[in-house]
Lab assay of single mutants.
Amino acid sequence: WEITFERNGKRITVRTTDHRLLELFEKLWRNGADERELERLAEEINR
């Protein structure tokens, strides 16, 4: 799966075969987690 999240013109794409990681990322994104931390998390998930 691949999903791109966008907020205030900032886009972060997450790619993984584990839908649970996408759900976790989406919850953090929707709850306003720090964008720098989300970028780092996305990099780890995308590996």
Rank of each mutant, 00 (worst) to 15 (best):
R11S: 13
V14P: 00
E39I: 13
L22F: 09
R47E: 08
I12M: 04
E43R: 09
A33S: 08
R15I: 09
E6L: 04
E26S: 03
E26T: 06
W1Y: 11
T13G: 02
R36M: 15
A33T: 11
I45K: 01
H19Q: 14
H19K: 14
E43P: 01
T16F: 12
W1D: 08
L38M: 08
R36S: 15
T4G: 03
T4W: 06
R47H: 10
G9E: 05
E35N: 07
E23N: 06
T13W: 01
E6W: 03
E26C: 05
L24A: 12
E37M: 13
T16R: 01
R11G: 07
L41F: 12
I3W: 06
T17Q: 11
E37I: 14
T4C: 08
L28F: 11
E37W: 08
F25G: 00
T17P: 08
R36G: 14
T17I: 07
T13Y: 04
T16Q: 01
E44D: 13
E35H: 12
T4H: 13
R30V: 14
I3M: 13
N8T: 04
G32M: 08
E44N: 07
E23V: 10
E6R: 01
R11L: 12
A33P: 02
A42P: 00
G9D: 05
K27L: 15
D18K: 03
I12P: 00
E35M: 15
A42R: 02
L28Y: 12
R7T: 12
G32Q: 07
F5E: 00
T17Y: 07
I45Y: 03
I45F: 04
E2C: 05
K27N: 15
R30S: 13
E37H: 07
L38R: 01
R7V: 15
K27V: 12
R11M: 11
R47G: 14
N46M: 09
N31C: 09
L24H: 10
D18A: 06
E37Y: 11
A33L: 10
R20W: 10
E35A: 11
T16I: 10
E6I: 10
L28Q: 08
E23G: 05
R30W: 14
W1H: 11
R11N: 08
R30G: 13
R47V: 09
N8E: 09
N46L: 09
N46Q: 07
K10P: 01
D18N: 11
E43K: 08
L22K: 06
W29Y: 10
L28A: 15
D18P: 01
R7C: 10
R36L: 15
E37T: 14
R15H: 07
V14G: 00
F25D: 00
L41M: 10
R40M: 12
F25T: 00
L41D: 00
L41K: 04
R15L: 04
H19T: 12
E44L: 14
E44K: 12
G9C: 05
K10N: 09
D18H: 06
D18S: 09
T16H: 10
R40A: 10
W29N: 04
G32N: 07
R30D: 14
R30A: 15
R11K: 15
T17H: 12
A33I: 09
W1P: 08
I3S: 07
T16L: 08
N31T: 12
E23S: 08
F25Q: 00
F5P: 00
R30Q: 15
